[in-house]
């Protein structure tokens, strides 16, 4: 039952995360910033609009946002939240989870290529390149966690995360946390990898892929992006916070608080760092992969 509470929280609270990040950035820049609920307003506005489709596009372009959102909703059903098992859990489901992230990315890239715009093709190419580098870091990190906790599903790994797990394996878990944080930033196209605010097509890779989407389609894409941020964030928070030691209600509250703190951290990172040169991004992701691998080795020892 409480597993569904996590899914419900993901579906309802996900758009809050970009709002928190934007408020943090505004605070650092000395502005008041948009309201916390601005992403919800944006979604409502976009859903009321009509969509415009270019004549060069095919059904792939229309399918992209729908399939992407569907995959992300399944992924949120897999991600445990608040120290309890997710509604959907089976052995090896973290591979399925990575596959779902891949499906979302794949359909978004197909839709981008379908428009025939060279800019969007460039964005798709970069998305593919960086995702290919982020995925080993993600999977190796989760393998290390699986080894340390003995769980083969995401719920088994993170649902059993307690103080005892941490005291037994501080170094590997801390390394995986850092590595997954980098993956979180890369997958959600946040600052050291990509600047979500830029509107110069040459430098961005995620936003440029969805330039041709409008109205409800853009709403679906933004909602899916918020969900992706929520599920990946819930993995980072799930590893960082051993909430299993707390009572159910408190564990849930602590996890939500952890998500908000994660967003504030992202906002601080975005305010303090500049975007990396494109040639430096692979090095960052490679570094994350090395951290995961080191965690795995130490875990095996």
């Amino acid at each position: 039952m409480s597993g569904y509470a996590g899914l419900f929280a993901a579906l309802v609270l996900a758009p809050l995360l970009p709002g928190v990040i934007n408020r943090t950035k505004s605070f650092f820049a000395g502005r008041r910033g948009p309201p916390l609920l601005q992403p919800y307003f944006d979604l409502a506005k976009l859903l009321r609009k009509g969509a415009v489709y270019s004549t060069t596009t095919t059904w792939l372009f229309r399918a992209g946002p729908v399939v992407g959102l569907a995959a992300m909703i399944v992924a949120s059903a897999l991600a445990p939240f608040g120290g309890v098992s997710a509604p959907l859990a089976f052995a090896g489901d973290f591979l399925f989870f990575a596959g779902l992230l891949g499906v979302t990315r794949f359909v978004t890239m197909l839709a981008a290529l379908d428009t025939g715009s060279s800019f969007e093709g460039m964005g798709a190419s970069r998305e593919a390149q960086f995702a290919a580098l982020a995925e080993p870091a993600f999977l190796l990190g989760l393998t290390a966690v699986a080894w340390k906790t003995g769980g083969l599903s995401l719920s088994g790994m993170l649902g059993t995360n307690s103080f005892a797990t941490w005291s037994g394996a501080t170094a590997p878990l801390a390394l995986v946390c850092v590595s997954l944080l980098v993956v979180f930033l890369a997958e959600n196209a946040r600052i050291p990898v990509d600047d979500p605010n830029t509107h110069l097509e040459l430098t961005m890779f995620h936003e440029v892929m969805v330039l041709d989407h409008g109205g409800p389609d853009l709403a679906l894409i933004q909602y899916a992006a918020a969900l992706k941020m929520w599920v990946l964030g819930s993995l980072v928070v799930g590893i960082a916070l051993p909430v299993r030691s707390l009572a159910h209600g408190w564990a849930f509250a602590a996890s939500v608080a952890g998500m908000l703190v994660l967003c504030v951290i992202v906002g601080v990172v975005e305010s303090c760092l500049a975007r990396l040169r494109l040639t430096r991004v692979p090095q960052l992701l490679l570094g994350a992969g090395v951290l995961s691998l080191l965690a795995l080795f130490i875990g095996l020892k």
Partner: peptide, 14 residues
């Protein structure tokens, strides 16, 4: 190169 050095570092770690 630096990325290749990092990869070599991984190999050396193994």
């Amino acid at each position: 190169g630096y990325n290749a050095s990092l990869l070599a570092g991984v190999l050396l770690m193994v």
